[in-house]
Amino acid sequence: MFEILLKEELAPKIKLFKVLAPELARKAEPGQFIILRIDEEGERIPLTIADFDRDAGTITIIFQEVGKTTDILGTLEAGDFLQDFVGPLGMESEIENYGTVVCIGGGVGVAPVFPIARALKEAGNTVISIIGARTADMLIWKQEMSHISSRLHVATDDGSLGQKGFVSDVLLEILGKTRVDRIIAIGPVPMMEAVCKVTPEDITTMVSLNPIMVDGTGMCGACRVEVDKKTRFACVDGPEFDGHKVNWELVKMRAKMFAKEEKEALSYHRCGEGECQCHRTNQNEK
């Protein structure tokens, strides 16, 4: 069992946990993820390692409540326990001194970009960051990102903070003015795809794919993606890939594999809708 030491609400439906997992914290690197299971009946879901503290033995995760499991997860509090917490999974980000790197985070994707941007900065890069969200109150970790960036740009869809528009619009402006050696973009699939569309082929643009996963160790193939016309398993070969080579149509299509079942489970589990099961996770305390 893994204890939740700290819970923070970063934005509506976006929450942060610090989880006690010393062995994992000892090995975690930027770009990697964990898989957790709340309880015996739970699904295994992957979440990126947003931060780690080797001394305190903690892993930070940030998640958005988008369905049954993340909904239930959001009802847990500091002091509660997660049944399973496994990792660090996936390959770590490639960190070198590239020169100037643009780090882009959209929505909850700002969380996984943070440790990568920090490592890139520590490796000597000039880090220009662009973070975005639909509205100002949905934007997370602006402070954290500004600490580790040489320059921080903010974009919101409605213009309630920073520039009005998408992160890809800001990127396009930067590309017009500044020499950029590498780009890393993490966020919703349409955002990552849009970023890849505006970046020239000769600037490597890394994206972090989030297909449906089960084991996260290369055993099931649920996480198949197509990169450079080859099938890869995102959990072991990724999750980061060169975005210019990703088959985005397939990524979008495969995310819908269980759309019907996800809806069914949600209506079954959401408070007030049908048979409310949300707070059953308190059984963890027994």
Binding site: E41, E43, R44, K68, D215, F258, E264, A265
Partner: peptide, 17 residues
């Protein structure tokens, strides 16, 4: 694995579809 390990045949009592 979905079925044996994750007990998807008991969905939605078990959450794995």
């Amino acid at each position: 694995t979905r079925n044996n390990l994750m007990k998807a045949y008991k969905f939605p009592d078990y959450l794995t579809p």
